[in-house]
């Protein structure tokens, strides 16, 4: 931010809606049928197709998704600060 001040860079912020729902899952995760949904069979559980809030790997999967997308767009990930991407 000190650099942004001297170089007169723009500073913008954005919010990714429901970011944790965008992550992909590598393993099979099942959950109980949520309340309010009537299962078609008496004993039924749900298999998750995407990441969901509350999962332990949710934040990691979102980070992985975002970094892959940014790198695909031609950005370079900083080696000294993994949450910094430059182009």
């Amino acid at each position: 931010m000190a650099i942004a001040a001297t170089e007169n860079w723009l500073l913008e912020q954005l919010y990714v809606k429901n970011a944790f729902l965008d992550g992909d899952l590598h393993e099979e995760v099942y959950m109980k049928v949520p309340k309010g949904v009537v299962p078609q069979k008496p004993v039924q559980i749900c298999k998750l197709r995407k990441s969901i809030y509350g999962l332990r790997q949710a934040s990691r999967q979102w980070y992985e998704k975002l970094s892959t997308v940014l790198i695909a767009l031609g950005y370079t990930q900083s080696q000294s600060d993994f949450s910094l991407f430059t182009k």
């Binding site: 723009l10 500073l11 912020q13 954005l14 990714v16 809606k17 970011a19 965008d22 767009l73």
Partner: peptide, 18 residues
Amino acid sequence: LKSLLDHLFKIKDLGQLK
């Protein structure tokens, strides 16, 4: 970049950093 991210993830643009 914003429009690309919006296309991929649906973002909310909050404008200038405050």
